[in-house]
Design a protein around this nucleic acid. Structure first.
Length: 695
DNA sequence: GCGATCAGCT
DNA sequence: CACAGCTGATCGC
């Protein structure tokens, strides 16, 4: 839960994700996504009144967030005061103090955050430097490096401060399986169950929140079965989501909810109330998405965990893991980083201790003697300087405005000195350097991994496959051997998933329709808590590979129908939109002037950064100064020589265990042989990076 | 009656 | 267990 108070040190006249207290005086509001803990005060009478008096105050958010927000009648009063901004479209906003007439210009860029539909990060550029507010985010390793607008001149922008989603900034959450791994695990579990008969149904026990949509859409896409939900009116203009949802209860996948859902489930009743179909009782399993974590040394590398006869937990997270956060921050390398969230069981100090070493404010403190002032790190790392780190020293010297960038001479945020702001940083971050981060981190890491194993009570006999090996394995073949009666055939191990048909499934014992376990035998016969391993094989799902290759695509690319398209009833054309982001704004004619306009692609010069800028004047009538979009092909071309690691890490190339060795074929074969023979297998980690098989 | 806050519960 | 909520009780306006 976010504990961000709403204001940033550098730009205190704007408020983000908080709308109460001090924030009632803000000159502009920003909403990163539509979760309640980021909307505090947004519908309070005090703010409503403020809005009625201050006609220049607007709320800025993504088009999808606007749509979701206005679906709720309680926020309808915002309708005329929301300005949606396309992602990856630098937009100028005038911040006007209505009392004094004082005016400040700021450029904001929305970057996809991969947290839930419409979720974005805000990149602000203005006279007090460049700052990034991440909101909540789930970005895989290397994804920051692929965000073009975080860069200029071929390297990452000079960012003064990052206001960071630190939900899982705790070594306990060292690694969380990727979106695709989790999705594949759930997919195969659901598939294995619902293909048994039309009366086998799955209940996805999802908490009330936006964020599971890509799970629903991918399951529906892969299995050809729509997902039953209670409501879908909020998605009425998002055909990509809408098409995969239904309010028809007769489907085999349910994500409906009820206050007594757990109780219902106990009585074999779905939350929507049904227990049978054609008078034939349903066989139901529940899958509860929850966050699990993989430690580098933990044996728990499973994406699906069976928790009862018909109950499963599936790994699922819409926040970045500890290592993803560190990768993100390391790449951005801001002067300062502020946590937006203090996870339960930890403290502000502990989070800061983790973030500090990744920030320049810490690094620049390291040299004991600085007779010539503090040398800027960027000076040594980046050669093609065109920003304010032209100044060699931290002393607040006047910075000459030189440059380039044709689009706007009057506003060139990065040409301003940022040194004045750094004086205002909260004491916490500038305080003691703290004792030896690396060592204390190591020890706490291993401690946590031990805890992790213990808390995840599973028997020693379980088959454990290191996450790094799983990519080569078929998910349905990775099941517990202990209680297995039927030993899977050897051939099955090397069958690709798409070759596995009903025939293949018949290698496993059929379910007992009455009395006995109804769980998929693919995974286990055991009724006690047991662990299952699911797929990491991305090749089995071309859909995911294409659509989710950047992780956040599946969420940020939620397609919003424009009013014109709605009238035409043409939704299919949207799905192939060549322009990323593919979000299209709903702009009623009457509101045209209020909304950001996005011209057609004419932008072609990758190297002239920030070429597209949309201006939103204080009167709320934005005009486009120049072309604001990049061709996707060009975006993919962006390679950053400064970070080879990020470059090479797509979702599918990242080993689940950092730095883990790729499995040798012989080792795998050895493992499979033992598996097929039903032998007990213990996989033990001798050191952090190599796995040794024992028996 | 409404909002804010908190405990309890998914 | 940890993702984001809902419900119900209590208190103050």
């Amino acid at each position: 839960m976010s504990s961000f108070e709403g204001q940033m040190v550098e730009y205190p006249t704007i408020s983000i994700d908080r709308f109460d207290r001090e924030n009632l005086r803000a000159r502009a509001y920003f909403l990163s996504h539509c979760h309640k803990d980021h909307m505090k005060g947004l519908r309070a009478p005090t703010l409503k009144r403020r809005l009625e008096c201050s006609l220049k105050v607007y709320l800025y958010c993504s088009p999808v967030t606007k749509e979701l927000l206005l679906t709720n009648p309680k926020y309808r009063f915002w309708e005329k005061r929301i300005i949606s901004i396309e992602t990856e479209t630098p937009t100028q906003i005038s911040l006007v103090d209505e009392a004094s007439g004082e005016k400040e210009e700021i450029v904001v860029t929305l970057l996809p955050a991969g947290h839930c539909p419409g979720s974005v990060m805000f990149l602000f550029q203005g006279s007090n430097g460049t700052v990034l507010y991440t909101g909540d985010f789930r970005l895989a390793k290397g994804e920051a490096a692929r965000m073009e607008l975080l860069h200029s001149g071929g390297r990452v922008k000079d960012i003064q401060s990052v206001y960071l989603d630190t939900t899982f900034c705790d070594p306990r959450f060292y690694q969380i399986p990727s979106r695709e791994e989790c999705l594949n695990g759930i997919l195969e579990l659901v598939r294995s169950w619902i293909t048994r008969s039309p009366y086998h149904v799955v209940w996805l026990n999802c908490k009330a929140a936006y964020g599971y949509e890509y799970l629903f859409t991918n399951l529906s896409e892969e299995l050809g079965v729509q997902v039953h939900v209670d409501r879908l009116d909020m998605f009425r203009n998002m055909p990509d989501i809408l098409h995969h949802l239904t309010t028809d209860r007769s489907t085999q996948i349910h994500a409906c909810r009820h206050p007594k859902a757990e109780e219902y489930f106990h009585w074999n009743k779905l939350p929507c109330g049904i227990t049978s179909r054609n008078r034939i009782p349903l066989h139901t399993i529940s899958i509860k998405p929850s966050t699990m974590w993989f430690g580098e040394r933990t044996r728990k590398t499973n994406v699906i965990v069976r928790t009862g006869e018909s109950s499963y937990r599936a790994c699922f997270s819409f926040h970045s893991s500890y290592s993803e956060i560190k990768d993100f921050l390391t790449y951005i390398c801001p002067v300062n980083a502020y946590p937006n969230v203090i996870p339960l069981g930890t403290t502000m100090d502990k989070v800061i201790e983790i973030l500090k070493p990744l920030c320049r404010s810490f690094q620049s403190l390291e040299p004991e003697y600085k007779p010539l002032g503090k040398l800027k790190r960027t000076r040594t790392i980046h050669y093609d300087s065109e920003e304010e780190d032209d100044e060699l020293f931290d002393d607040p010297l006047p910075v000459p405005l030189r440059h380039k960038v044709p689009y706007q001479q009057t506003l060139h945020p990065e040409a301003f000195s940022t040194t004045t702001v750094s004086e205002n940083q909260p004491k916490k971050l500038r305080q003691s350097i703290g004792s030896c981060k690396a060592e204390s981190m190591q020890s706490s890491l291993s401690e946590n991994f031990v805890d992790c194993e213990e808390s995840n009570s599973a028997s020693e006999e379980e088959l454990e496959i290191p996450a790094s090996l799983q990519g080569d394995l078929d998910p349905v073949t990775l099941h517990q051997q202990k209680a297995e009666v039927d030993i899977p055939q050897w051939e099955v191990f090397f069958k690709r998933n798409d070759e596995i048909t009903d025939e293949g499934l018949e290698n496993f014992p059929p379910s007992t329709e009455t009395g006995g376990s109804q769980s998929p035998k693919l995974f286990s016969d055991s009724d006690e808590e047991s662990t299952h391993i699911s797929s990491q094989n991305s090749s089995q799902s071309t859909h995911i590979t294409e659509q989710g290759s950047q992780g956040w695509d599946s969420q940020s690319d939620t397609v919003l129908l424009s009013s014109q398209e709605r009238n035409n009833g043409d939704t299919t054309s949207l799905n192939q939109g060549g322009c990323r982001p593919r979000i299209k704004e709903n702009i009623p004619v009457s509101q045209m002037e209020q909304n950001v306009l996005c011209p057609k692609d004419t932008y072609s010069d990758l190297k002239s950064r920030d070429a597209g800028l949309t201006v939103v004047p204080s009167i709320g009538e934005p005009t486009t100064l120049s072309d604001g979009k990049h061709l996707p092909e060009e975006k993919r071309l962006l390679h950053l020589s400064t970070n080879t690691d990020s470059q090479s890490s797509s979702d599918f190339e990242i080993p689940s265990t950092p730095e883990a060795e790729l499995p040798k074929r012989e080792h795998l074969q050895h493992l499979y042989e033992k598996l097929a023979a039903g032998e007990r297998i213990v996989v033990e980690k001798e050191n952090a990076h190599s796995w040794i098989l024992k028996n």
